[in-house]
Design a protein around this nucleic acid. Structure first.
Length: 991
RNA sequence: GCCCUGGUGGUGGAAUUGGUAGACACGCAGGACUUAAAAUCCUGUGGGCAGCAAUGCCCGUAACGGUUCAAUUCCGUUCCGGGGCACCA
């Protein structure tokens, strides 16, 4: 029999599905705990309409291999899958077509599931979750209520029920509280406050709270846009202007968790890059807040600085133009200039401010007083100081800070040098090592040490204090959209009240129109029944459902709780989480926060969700891009120029001649003539197969054209050739010279970029599976390189993996004779191959080096083919090793083996699946040689070889070496300095 | 600009703790089988030099320098690619 992957894969996928082999059970009380648990999680996908491409399964295959491996190793493995099914694209699609998002989502999920099953994953679909399912989002809403009904106790550093805070207020007011907002009142005052006042104070403490914030508002579209939807200050769709608008918004008080999110990173196994990204995002810095008196004014000017040691180097102050203080302190003479500047700043978009870092600013006319030496310091305003960070004001030290230096130079502000020779007068030096000069009582102290001295002095005088700041802001938690979880909140007299638990889930109502509501509100505001109940019209953002989904998989059908405590205690943390880096500061941070809140409220028993995180690299597409001279084609085009999707069909209206095409090398394009071109992406229907050879590419692309006749009027361009008018033509760039005046108008180049439908560079796994089978596809994706690495997709080479599987099959089965496995006893050489392979595959799988694992199988197969080994005792363990990587072929051959005569008798274990086999154990005795030919080098130079017993002690080896003629000659009677004996590798004598 | 990564044959990539660099695969070249093709199998394949040959010697992991008996691996400087953050005081 030959390797018929199509039948085999179909047969086993059906078999697995029908017999529910992947169903995972939670242990009943008192049973099932004999197996250790292991939780492998994939980041669940958003079910987009485009379906899977070859980039998606990379992480899924890796996690599938690892899950199957762990299962064979005797673990109770939870490996679920679900869908992050709320989101913008479905709503956008609904807006365009009127189709309900629930329907399109359902359809897309079906496609995704079919595609995933096609690859042969071992998901327990009975645990599937969908964030848009009311049975699921009931609990998202429920957890939201826990956040709403909790506050963060800063003293105990944990979340607590807000009812406790109310009790405290009733008992002792704010005397012993540190609250996020500056409030202070006594117990009596609290009791006298009316409901509105009390609720507003509580709102300032809740972990999920309502406030006002800025959103991207597009007047033309009448809607709020996400940051991604705004490109260069205009809306991505339609190119309408976008402005900031203040709207009522919900927030999560994630800033309270900043420190714990930072510390938690020490307890988890994430890559350094990932930890770095998260801690940069949190952006903790420590320094001091210092109050400066303002000359002739009663107000204080508070600044935040990380370098209080430079206090005597302060030559000017800068405050953010947005601060109210500006109006209060501007002098009469400067008032006009200040007002003009503020108008200018308002006219500038955030993007402009970031893009062109112009030095701008204006003097307010006011002076701050240095508290230590009474020096008068001019106060400026400038857009480079941000109102939202620290106090919105800085003390500028031009000799130590680059931006301050440039500002001082630009406006001719004199610079005080406090760091002596460390400052060269040319540029600022942010050192902490300098010995301070011109610094009053700090003179002679090294800067590093002076920080504490200054803070102590500030605190003693009561004009400043040690202060820690974070870049991270509270997370905006509402969207003015339809397709998301409704908030379980109703508004009565302007006060937000939670719904009762019994009212959950608060289901999304059916709507006929997905158009935004009035005044930037979401579509829910258009529904009279909804607004009549005073329900919140915002919905939750995409990351709401994904912040806790890993818990629901544990106990997906629970009607009483989001997840039973006993169950979450059993499954505990996710042991292995695989997904892309793009969620570094979004999803990962939020789900870590939610986990900490649930832990604080004693609803789960751990406060970090993911023990180990592996970031899979992105598989990029190779886009064939044609550059067309601007104006030569009317339909347009292009990356980043317009959102019109352009399919470059060069079909012409009847009667007009087809454009004559010529191709040019990409090096023709340069800085000077660049503006004459616009790029377009060209659809490539199939990639090269079985060849890196250009002439064969042509044939295969030609084949592609045959397979996709509907694209025959398109032009297919690959490397040096193009397909046009039914013929392949090659183009020799040496023969082509370029001149813009010649009106030649077309050339191509390729670019590596993200795979996306709109770029025509998507490679669909279904096509590859149809051609080579799921097992080949799985192994090839792994074989491409380390999982963590991003790389462009390249199909050449898949033949090699397919060839390997065919070769592997032939170890078991002959085309004419069928199964050829014998029960002979293996030879030592064969046992060595097997045990070396067990060792290699196990260590490669453990360290996620799946590419090396695949190589391991290839090596073993080559060696066993050479040995003509068809022995059950070698092949059966090998099959079990292969099962995680290529489950279908392994299952099929295992079934055949089990039915074949075996020493235990015919048909033994015929029904047993390889999925429940026992992983073979490595035994060193089969691999160790009793003696080995070692290379012996002297001072690193290879001089001779010696046969040395592997069991020999180091001293015996040394004696033997010293007797060797070649070594003796080199030593010339003197004892060697050192003999290095690296087990299994080499011997080096150092003289 | 700052932070994190990485740079190895024609290509994807191995080399786990500093220990014989280039495993495995692709591609290419030659050969076997075949009327032919496909499939399959065998041999060679970093560069240079010497030799009829087996083989031997030298160079070689972005560049330069350092530590070491020994460096793809550790240290320093420079160059290039990828990712993240970006006026954060």
């Amino acid at each position: 029999m030959e390797y018929n992957f199509r039948d085999i894969e179909k047969k086993w996928q059906k078999q697995w599905k029908d017999s529910h082999v992947y169903k995972v059970f939670n242990p009943e009380p008192g049973e099932g705990l004999n197996k250790p648990k292991y939780y492998v999680l994939d980041m669940f996908p958003y079910p987009s309409g485009a379906g899977l491409h070859v980039g998606h399964p990379l992480g899924y295959i890796a996690s599938d291999i690892y899950s199957r491996y762990k299962r064979l190793k005797g673990f109770n493995v939870l490996h679920p899958m679900g869908f992050d099914s709320f989101g913008l694209p479905a709503e956008q699609y609904a807006l365009d077509t009127g189709q309900h998002p629930a329907e399109t989502t359902k359809k897309n999920i079906e496609t995704f599931k079919a595609q995933l099953d096609n690859i042969g994953f071992c998901y327990d679909w009975s645990r599937e979750v969908q964030t848009s399912d009311p049975n699921y989002y009931k609990w998202t809403q429920w957890i939201f209520l826990q956040l709403f009904n909790s506050y963060y106790d800063r003293k105990d550093q944990k979340a607590k029920p807000i009812t406790e805070l109310i009790k405290t207020f009733e008992k002792e007011g704010t005397a012993n509280c540190q609250l996020p907002a500056a409030n202070s009142f006594s117990a009596d005052e609290w009791k006298r406050y009316d409901e509105a006042m009390q609720q507003s104070i509580l709102m300032d403490c809740r972990l999920a709270f309502c406030g006002y914030g800025e959103v991207n508002w597009c007047e033309a579209l009448g809607t709020v846009l996400a940051n991604d939807e705004v490109v260069n200050g205009v809306s991505e769709r339609g190119g309408h202007p976008v402005v900031k608008k203040t709207l009522r918004q919900w927030y999560l008080r994630i800033t309270e968790y900043a420190d714990r999110l930072l510390e938690g990173l020490n307890t988890v196994d994430f890559s350094d890059a990932m930890k770095e990204m998260q801690s940069n995002w949190i952006g903790k810095s420590s320094g001091a807040e210092i109050d400066f008196a303002i000359k002739d004014h009663n107000q204080k000017l508070s600044v935040y600085t990380t370098r209080p040691d430079t206090i005597f180097g302060v030559d000017f102050m800068v405050i953010a133009p947005e601060l109210e203080l500006v109006d209060q302190i501007k002098s009469a003479t400067q008032a006009t200039a200040v007002d003009e500047y503020i108008t200018y700043v308002k006219s500038r978009s955030e993007r402009e401010r970031m893009a062109e870092k112009k030095i701008t600013g204006v003097f307010t006319g006011a002076y701050a007083i240095n508290p230590f030496d009474g020096r008068e310091i001019p106060i400026w305003i400038s857009e480079y100081v941000l109102a939202g960070y620290g106090t919105g004001a800085i003390m500028a030290v031009p000799c130590g800070d680059e931006r301050d230096y440039k500002f001082a130079k630009h406006f001719n502000i004199p610079i005080t040098n406090i760091i002596g020779s460390y400052y060269n007068g040319e540029e600022a030096n942010p050192t902490k090592e300098a010995v301070l000069e011109n610094s009053n009582f700090l003179n002679g102290i090294v800067m590093k040490g002076a920080i504490d001295v200054v803070i102590a002095a500030l605190e003693e005088r009561g004009i400043g204090e040690r202060k820690v700041n974070y870049k991270m802001r509270d997370a905006a938690f509402s969207r003015q959209r339809y397709w998301g979880e409704p908030f379980p909140i109703k508004w009565i007299d302007g006060i937000a009240y939670p719904l009762d638990e019994s009212e959950l889930p608060l289901e999304l109502p059916h709507v006929d129109s997905y158009k935004p509501g009035p005044d930037g509100e979401g579509p829910l505001a258009n529904i009279p029944e909804w607004t009549a109940k005073n329900l919140e019209t915002n919905t939750m953002p995409g990351y709401a459902g994904s912040s806790w989904y890993f818990l629901r998989y544990m106990d997906p059908d629970n009607k009483q709780a989001f997840c039973d405590r006993k169950v979450s205690d059993y499954w505990n943390q996710v042991d292995l989480y695989i997904g892309g880096t793009e969620h570094a500061v979004g999803h990962l941070l939020y789900s870590r926060m939610w986990t900490k809140v649930l832990f604080d409220l004693n609803l789960i028993g751990f406060d970090e969700p993911y023990k180990k995180l592996v970031n899979q690299g992105m598989i990029q597409g190779v886009s064939q891009i044609a550059y067309v001279r601007k104006g030569d084609f009317e339909e347009g085009v292009s990356k980043g120029m317009s959102n019109t999707v352009f399919i470059p069909k060069f079909s012409n209206p009847a009667g007009t001649p087809k454009p004559k095409l010529q191709l040019y090398s990409s090096d023709i394009i340069n800085e000077e003539n660049k503006e004459y071109f616009k790029p377009i992406n060209i659809p490539i229907e199939l990639v090269q197969i079985n060849s890196g050879d250009t002439s064969k590419n042509l044939l295969d692309i030609g084949l592609a054209v045959e397979l996709f006749p509907q694209r025959l009027d398109a032009i297919y361009i690959v490397n040096d050739a193009y397909y046009y008018e039914g013929n392949w033509r090659t183009w020799n760039k040496d023969e082509v010279t370029w001149s813009i005046t010649e009106k030649r108008n077309f050339f191509t180049t390729s670019e590596v970029e993200k795979m996306s439908k709109s770029k025509y560079n998507v490679v669909n796994p279904d096509d590859l599976i149809a051609r080579y089978g799921a097992d080949t596809f799985r192994m090839y994706e792994m074989f491409l390189g380390p999982v963590e690495m991003s790389k462009p997709w390249d199909t050449k080479g898949i033949e090699g993996v397919h060839r390997f599987l065919k070769k592997f099959w032939r170890l078991f089965s002959d085309e004419t004779k069928g199964l050829i496995v014998t029960n002979e006893e293996p030879t030592p050489a064969e046992l060595k191959v097997l045990h070396n392979t067990i060792k290699k595959i196990e260590s490669d799988t453990e360290r996620f080096s799946f590419n090396n694992g695949v190589s391991g199988f290839m090596i073993a197969t080559n060696e066993l083919t050479d040995l003509k080994c068809h022995k059950r005792k070698i092949l059966e363990p090998l099959l079990i090793l292969l099962a995680p990587y290529a489950p279908h072929i392994a299952e099929e051959l295992y079934a055949q083996l089990r039915k074949a005569p075996s020493p235990e008798g015919e048909g033994v274990g015929g029904e047993v699946s390889i999925l429940n086999a026992t992983y073979p154990t490595f035994e060193e005795k089969y691999v160790i040689e009793t003696s080995k030919e070692y290379p012996v080098s002297i001072n690193g130079k290879l001089r001779t070889t010696m046969n040395i017993s592997l069991d020999a002690a180091q001293s015996e080896v040394e004696k033997l070496i010293l007797k060797n003629e070649v070594v003796k000659k080199w030593l010339e009677g003197k004892p060697p300095k050192k003999i290095i004996y690296v087990k299994n590798k080499m011997i080096n004598v150092v003289v």
